[in-house]
Amino acid sequence: MKIMHNHPYHLVDFSPWPLTGAIGVMTLVTGLVKWFHNFNMNLLILGYFIIIMTMYQWWRDICRESTFQGKHTILVSNGLRWGMILFIISEIFFFISFFWAFFHSSLSPNIEIGAMWPPLNIMPFNPFQIPLLNTIILISSGITVTWAHHSLMDNNFSQTTQSLLITIILGIYFTMLQAYEYMEASFTIADSIYGSTFFMATGFHGLHVIIGTLFLLTCFIRHLNYHFSNNHHFGFEAAAWYWHFVDVVWLFLYISIYWWGN
């Protein structure tokens, strides 16, 4: 195979992962619907298995193409940047729909829920206790991830390791506190539109925190394997962008649902 090209584009090799990915999501969604209709979880578990195997191997291939084959030229890297930007914009709109549901229901509460917000007999969280701590944790993790980025750009291996590890620990701490809050909640997802919008919005945010933590953990492992250089580390930058996005969504959740909606 020719190694040198007279163009900067990445002409990809044949790959089975788009096909296994398509089969996987179809299986996953069918399995999810089947489970929701109170059948067993077999198809759902199969779907998860196919998707996780596809994600692992597809991203493994991309790491090889980028780190070891040098396929990610500046032009390719710019394409990846645009891809991540557009993905995060689509994620913003995903969360806008939950905020829309929340404000639709809370700004003019129906007579059926007591014409008040929070609805009659719903006891929301005190926003100045664990939710405030969670806000501080996420903002702090934004600081430590910037510390990691500057260390990486400065070729400082140990500082990058240290700061990235602290960021991941903060992400895990946030998830643990949210799990504790969920178990101590006096309302459930089945308790009026308050419970539905609350758990829909904070639940999907929590899922995104877990995904962001895994993304940073992947960067941490790649860093320990010397995959990143001071000018070639878009995987890390994408993880940092994603982390900041999750952080900003939390600030909006905190201000509108935990604080104003209380």
């Binding site: 600081i143 510390w147 500057h150 400065d154 500082q159």
Partner: peptide
């Protein structure tokens, strides 16, 4: 990075 480490 020193600034961000100190802030952390």
């Amino acid at each position: 990075w020193k600034l961000w480490k100190n802030l952390s």
